[in-house]
């Protein structure tokens, strides 16, 4: 991850999240664009006020990021936030977009013109979504959702590249098997072929890991495992 785009709205959550990630040596070397977008306003006065406020939001964000200031580029832009975020990410060939999300369901997101939903659908770049109501914690437990797909393999590789240089971090390799019942499989995690293969690779790289297996619907299963294990960052392919 060499280029990170942080879309800031003034609440400070994405900045906090970045600072947790910044403990990862690989992230410290990244260049960071901090973007604030001012949506169209009805009057010139309103626009001027919003731009001024935006400048302050950017200045505060730059101050709060724990990274060498020479690596930060602040950008204040006008327009429709969902288009601008996607556009800037493409322009700068961003490797990771960090942005907030309200945790709306798909329908609510469409009705409410959700920026993160739109960027998720239109951009093919990795995204780190920080929901309004989550508590951003120091990263000690990272979970990666595994299955047989290439997408899961990619996310596993990304997880490995993040945790390799980190001390005191545990990588949870998680799989939910749709055909199984949770209590049938939970004690057999190490024997699962998908997890066993990933575990072998993690072991070779000296990464501290644990395997967790469950059954049932993958979505709720993954969320439940993440909550049970008190996970600080969940990685999954999409």
């Amino acid at each position: 991850i060499r280029k990170i785009l942080i879309s800031v709205a003034g609440r400070g959550l994405c900045e906090e999240m970045f600072n947790m990630l910044a403990e990862i040596p690989a992230i410290q070397q990244a260049s960071v664009t901090v973007l604030h977008v001012v949506p169209p306003q009805v009057t010139a006065e309103a626009m001027s006020a919003k731009l001024e406020e935006g400048g302050k939001i950017l200045a505060d964000a730059v101050k709060s990021l724990k990274v060498d200031p020479s690596r930060i580029t602040p950008r204040l832009k006008q327009g429709d936030p969902k288009n601008i975020v996607t556009q800037v990410a493409d322009e700068e060939e961003t490797d990771l977009i960090i942005m907030g999300s309200r945790g709306l369901t798909r329908l609510e997101a469409i009705l409410e013109n959700s920026v993160s939903q739109y960027v998720f659908q239109l951009s093919s770049r990795p995204m780190l979504l920080v929901k309004d109501d989550v508590y951003v914690k120091q990263i000690r437990r990272i979970m990666v959702a595994m299955d047989k797909s290439d997408a899961a393999q990619n996310s596993f590789e990304l997880a490995l590249s993040l945790v390799r240089d980190m001390k005191n971090v545990q990588l949870y390799l998680a799989r939910v098997i749709p055909e199984a019942k949770p209590d049938q499989v939970m004690s057999n995690a190490e024997a699962d072929p998908v997890l066993a293969e990933a575990a072998a690779k993690a072991k070779r790289l000296g990464v501290s890991y644990r395997c967790v297996l469950s059954g049932g619907k993958p979505g709720p299963g993954i969320c439940e495992l993440a909550e049970d294990k008190n996970i600080d960052l969940l990685i999954l392919g999409s």
């Binding site: 920080v130 993954i222 600080d232």
Partner: peptide, 18 residues
Amino acid sequence: SLSDYVRVKANCPVLLSR
């Protein structure tokens, strides 16, 4: 999809790799 569900419901920050 799985990523749709998880990014809405998960109780922690979610990194979607592509």
